[in-house]
Design a protein around this nucleic acid. Sequence first.
DNA 1: TCCCTTTCCTAAAGCGCTTCAGCAACCGCC
DNA 2: GGCGGTTGCTGAAGCGCTTTAGGAAAGGGA
Lengths: 317, 317
Amino acid sequence: MSFAVNGRPGVGVQTRARILDVAKDLGWRPSASARALTEARTRTIGLVLSRAHEELEVDSFFVRFLSGVERMLAPAEYALLLQLLPAGGAANVLEAYERLAAAGRVDGFLITDPELEDPRFALLAEIGLPVVVAGRPGAGSPFPWLETEHDLGAILAVEHLVGLGHERIAFLGGSPRYEHVQRRLVRWREALSAAGLGGGPVVFAEGDLSAAVPPVLEGRPSAVVCTSDTLAMALVAVARARKIAIPSELSITGFDDSAMAVLSSPALTSVRVDYGEFGAAATAALLAELSGAKPGAYKPSAPVLEVRASTSAAVHR
Amino acid sequence: MSFAVNGRPGVGVQTRARILDVAKDLGWRPSASARALTEARTRTIGLVLSRAHEELEVDSFFVRFLSGVERMLAPAEYALLLQLLPAGGAANVLEAYERLAAAGRVDGFLITDPELEDPRFALLAEIGLPVVVAGRPGAGSPFPWLETEHDLGAILAVEHLVGLGHERIAFLGGSPRYEHVQRRLVRWREALSAAGLGGGPVVFAEGDLSAAVPPVLEGRPSAVVCTSDTLAMALVAVARARKIAIPSELSITGFDDSAMAVLSSPALTSVRVDYGEFGAAATAALLAELSGAKPGAYKPSAPVLEVRASTSAAVHR
DNA sequence: TCCCTTTCCTAAAGCGCTTCAGCAACCGCC
DNA sequence: GGCGGTTGCTGAAGCGCTTTAGGAAAGGGA
């Protein structure tokens, strides 16, 4: 019977058809629980997210990545077990992975936001379930990983600004602990050198943005590359308070091209990265891992700079 | 054995202790699959969301609700099966519920965004799994439901504006198909009457906001109550393009107090509704349903108006 | 002392599926 | 026609738990 349903060989063609017919007539559907028990796999993957909810809320990455994950999961008849945890509780996070794995609720994990010295790696290595890391893990990760080319977006932003005649281009990043912030910084620097420009002011802002953002204006840049739309909006607010006109006196680029970028006034020039595709690719890699197949290569599509009203030609003073 | 683990009577106190000890020593953890099979329940609840991802992205409801759900689920040892579907495919949505239920992957569903004439109700009633509706369902829902008092937020907004001396207060709502938009409209009207004011212009904006929002300015209101921060920001952009100063010439209130509200410049006065609490309550109700217990009453906390820079005293001309 | 009750624990069945062993039927070969 | 080899199907075991039935031990009353 299960041979017929699962399309295995050794069953006559018409016998199979007959069985499937009867099954359909009876409205029979295999029980996921029973299958999980015998097959020793649940067709479920786990995603444990531990971020402050305010952060998730403004983060276009989260929803877009998730939607990519789901897009990939659905046709494979896999389901997603999502666990959302308050930020900061590293112990809770580890326990969450541990519990899901010990109870055999998931077949594998998708990991996002890898950190340097991430304690999850050791735990998950011990657990032994397949894992795919979405993002570039620090040393000591035994798991396959993939990453977008988001950092190239920083180059796009700089080139765009250079093309507009800007010469003092600052960098406003989120927490320097984030690997992606560091990478964008590197690219920003590269692009400036390539244009024959020296590096402008570099500022990292976290926590209370109204206090952390203003320093970036110290060096009197004519343009600022921000690593998120959130930062860009905070900078717009600061500039406005100081009667600095945007974009005529100060050009600003955001990052992620979140919904806010369009809504903001002026609308933000921002880097769009296809995180949906990223989520789908990470999921595909995990599914491949689970089925023992070779994962197809992930060829991230290039980031795109959406040019809007927050950038314009530099006014040389 | 399972008697000991599940704390049932008929087991000696020390026998139980011994068993639990040994279990711990062996690192034994019950298999969720096996339990699911015998207990005929998975300790998993399903949440199927079908919204455009751009919409989810700006929607603070989504993440906050979800975090409330998780907060409730974790201590109960329940897990969340999340299915995110592209908007519009009503058939896909129904199929998703059907599949999760038929495979017995979930014990019950949480429904959000109920619509009038929602086809999910008929399907889920037939399926027979416990369901709790988060939001006020149209007629024909046989399921328990709960709702926040978000609509009182519209009253807060109007009262705030009236207190500032505004007399021509417009209403800018999202799609009129949304029940919550309609309710806020009713409250807006109530509050205006209570203040002895006639209703100002009412405009619903969906789709391309840059085209749909401007009409609200036709009636030359001195203040506009918006049903989302997204709309409020779109209105800010429109006003700015027309050189209408905010808040001196036009006061604007948002709704949801999303992360954008603070980031926007000017920062938006906005209604904060505790959607986390809402998600937790809905989940508690579903868990109660699942365990056959009486659900505790949900006493929604009152919405709060966060007053920021987008509203100020009316200038009478 | 014996029997009956209560208390505790052990053994076995069964949840709904997958899988493996085994058997019947059939083919073509010498 | 008899034989190994193949193909197609059936039956039973077992996944790891829960639950029920039933048995052993201990306690209490006559």
